[in-house]
């Protein structure tokens, strides 16, 4: 344990140097080099939303709108309360014809709805579930006096369980799993998984899609905004 802590402490300064290099490249306008450095940092710590955010900045400055949008989306999924991250994600989404808040939903309402990430809501949901079930079990096993004492706690835990469960389900419907971002310019959506099928739609780079199925080198995707679907080359989509 001591050795592990020591190794972790030693690793912090080692990680700071690559970050400084990446930042210096970004500040100097060498965006491709900065993007490569940030990618290495993200690979080492994929759970840090700030690194995904920084990678998105470098990719966008390097002209890679789709990949930047994917990085911003990952940062948003990890830390949806970060105002800078929301701003930059909304910035790139507008460039591809979307907005962060779905049409018809006021931005403050959507911000409140997405104040917690799906992971956090899942954690809160399960935490409340654990509390409610343990309290219920203790109530069943305990005396009538204990049951009375635990009743309010049990009701609170059950209400929290229901609240977070419904919230989690709602967020999963708005930001479903199996999403991707189009990284090719004017990608073609065909009516089947192959070149022989006609092109039904074209979609701009950076547009978010939901991946419905896979067939070889092709993905069946649905455009979240327009509600249409088609087949696209897998290389044209970066999965989130």
């Amino acid at each position: 344990m001591i050795l592990a802590l020591l190794a972790a402490a030693l690793a912090l300064p080692a990680a700071a140097a690559p970050y400084a290099d990446a930042k210096a490249a970004y500040d100097a306008g060498s965006y491709d080099r900065a993007a490569a450095a940030f990618e290495a940092l993200v690979a080492a710590d994929p759970g840090d939303p700030a690194l995904h955010y920084d990678l998105g900045n470098a990719l966008l400055k390097a002209g890679k709108l789709g990949r930047a949008s994917a990085s911003y989306q990952r940062a948003f999924d990890l830390d949806p309360r970060d105002g800078d991250g929301r701003h930059n994600l909304d910035f790139v989404l507008k460039r591809s014809g979307e907005e962060l808040a779905p049409p018809g939903i006021p931005a403050p309402a959507f911000a409140a709805f997405t104040a917690l990430s799906a992971r956090e809501l899942a954690g809160l949901h399960w935490l409340a579930a654990w509390a409610a079930m343990i309290l219920a079990g203790l109530s069943l096993l305990g005396s009538p006096e204990r049951r009375e004492a635990l009743r309010d706690w049990l009701l609170g835990a059950a209400a929290a369980w229901a609240l977070f469960g419904l919230w989690w389900a709602g967020l999963s419907a708005v930001l479903p799993a199996g999403r991707g971002v189009i990284v090719a310019g004017r990608a073609e959506l065909r009516n089947g998984p192959g070149e022989k099928f006609t092109v039904g739609y074209t979609a701009p780079e950076g547009r978010r899609v939901r991946i419905l199925s896979e067939s070889g080198e092709w993905l069946e995707v649905g455009l979240l905004k327009e509600g249409v679907k088609g087949w696209i080359l897998a290389a044209s989509v970066e999965k989130l």
Partner: peptide
Amino acid sequence: DIRYLKAPDGRGLPAKALAALGAFGR
């Protein structure tokens, strides 16, 4: 324009607690 870079060590204790919560959910 987009906003500037964000240092990776900017996460405070609440964020780490929520991250741990997210890990608990998985």
